[in-house]
Simulated assay, not measured.
Amino acid sequence: MTVRAAWLTNRGDAAGGQTRNDTRLAPLGAMTPAAELTTAPGVIPGGDPFELAATGPMTATLATGRATIQGTGPQGAYPVAITAPEALVFADGDPANPRIDLVVLRIYDTAYDSSGQTFATVEIIPGTPGAAPTPPPTPAGALALYRVQVAAGLSAGTGGIDFPAATTDVRRYTTAVGGITPYSVTGAYRGQYRDTGTGLQRFTGTTWSGLAAEVIGWTKVSLATGYGHNGNSNGDVRYRVIDLLGTRFVQWRGGMNLSYSRGAPRGDGKFLRTALPTTARPTGLRSLSVACSASTSSILSIKVDFHSNGLGVVISDAGDTPPWLSLHGVMYPL
């Protein structure tokens, strides 16, 4: 038996009872609370648990992994493990319409569901064919893992399922209390943490607050005529947007070469060829002092304005024409 559950049967049951090996394999410590008596269901992270891999036109396997499945409040949570790949066989497509099937890890417990069965299993729940199909609902006592689209008329004879294109990963993850849950989860208690994929967030009890999340990664800007990258060998001019303790900031780095016309920076100092995207624009004017060359300049810093319309403007004093400036360390709130 490759799908094992702990605390589902006992030695007196006809099903054979929980073995010591079942208890060792099943995840007993992964219990992020959802409410007073319930646990957030989910997959236990580590490697690629329950990976879906195609084995034929209409067949696939579900790899090994561990999970926790929550029943009703009084029913409790079931630790489950798959110890060897499980074979999946998808039914042929409907002649006229596509459908969406749901791959789930499921608990049957007749003491609560009147199914007459007591075991853990992997199931494909077929969707209803339709012109605009929707996936079937996840049954009680089940954990959804994947949605698979099955096109109309599809079969092994017509080429089968293109699994990489047809599969949507809906695995949700869970960890022990105090652990950092990968990916987005619903907040359950104050002080809970999650990893959004770009940074950490903390749940305040009512909302998620960013600790240090990257909203836009380092992006090289396109500079206007008269301006160039790598001023004073400081690297290309780049920016990124981060979420720090609930406030968004723009960070800059790199060096910029400048040229002048009639003693003023070219193009009225507007050094960006295109405006910054909306998510990187400040709500009001941000004026900063940045380091510049001492050559042909009586000052060691120069003013740069960042406007709410996404423009960046260099402003210098008459007679000061430094050939480069450095944006390293520049950061301002949006």
Results as ranks from 00 to 15, higher is better:
2 T>P: 15
5 A>G: 05
7 W>K: 14
11 R>E: 11
13 D>C: 08
14 A>C: 11
19 T>Q: 00
19 T>L: 07
20 R>I: 14
26 A>R: 03
28 L>W: 10
30 A>H: 11
30 A>L: 11
40 A>I: 14
41 P>T: 03
53 A>H: 02
54 A>W: 02
60 A>G: 07
60 A>H: 03
60 A>K: 03
61 T>Y: 00
62 L>V: 08
68 T>P: 01
68 T>E: 10
68 T>N: 12
69 I>L: 10
73 G>S: 13
77 A>I: 06
79 P>V: 11
80 V>E: 02
81 A>N: 02
85 P>M: 08
86 E>R: 11
88 L>Q: 08
90 F>T: 07
90 F>A: 02
91 A>N: 13
93 G>R: 05
93 G>D: 05
94 D>A: 09
95 P>G: 05
105 L>W: 00
106 R>M: 09
111 A>E: 13
115 S>T: 12
123 E>P: 01
124 I>P: 05
125 I>N: 11
127 G>L: 03
130 G>H: 04
131 A>R: 09
135 P>Y: 03
143 L>I: 07
153 G>I: 04
153 G>H: 04
155 S>D: 01
156 A>R: 09
161 I>H: 01
166 A>Q: 09
169 D>A: 10
175 T>F: 07
176 A>T: 08
181 T>R: 13
189 Y>N: 06
190 R>K: 15
193 Y>M: 12
196 T>N: 11
198 T>S: 15
199 G>A: 05
203 F>D: 08
203 F>P: 06
211 L>R: 10
212 A>M: 12
216 I>G: 00
218 W>F: 05
219 T>C: 08
221 V>M: 04
224 A>C: 01
226 G>Q: 04
227 Y>L: 06
229 H>A: 07
232 N>E: 10
236 D>L: 04
237 V>F: 11
237 V>E: 02
239 Y>S: 03
241 V>R: 09
243 D>M: 10
243 D>H: 04
243 D>A: 12
244 L>V: 12
249 F>W: 14
250 V>S: 06
252 W>I: 04
252 W>S: 05
253 R>V: 02
253 R>C: 10
259 S>G: 10
262 R>V: 11
263 G>A: 09
265 P>T: 00
269 G>A: 03
272 L>W: 01
273 R>M: 13
273 R>P: 12
278 T>I: 14
278 T>A: 15
278 T>H: 11
282 P>Q: 06
282 P>G: 02
282 P>A: 04
287 S>K: 09
288 L>F: 06
289 S>N: 10
289 S>H: 00
290 V>D: 02
291 A>L: 15
294 A>E: 14
297 S>D: 10
297 S>K: 03
300 L>K: 13
304 V>K: 01
305 D>M: 06
306 F>S: 01
308 S>A: 15
310 G>W: 03
310 G>A: 06
311 L>D: 15
315 I>N: 14
316 S>K: 00
316 S>E: 05
319 G>N: 09
321 T>D: 09
330 V>Y: 06
334 L>E: 07
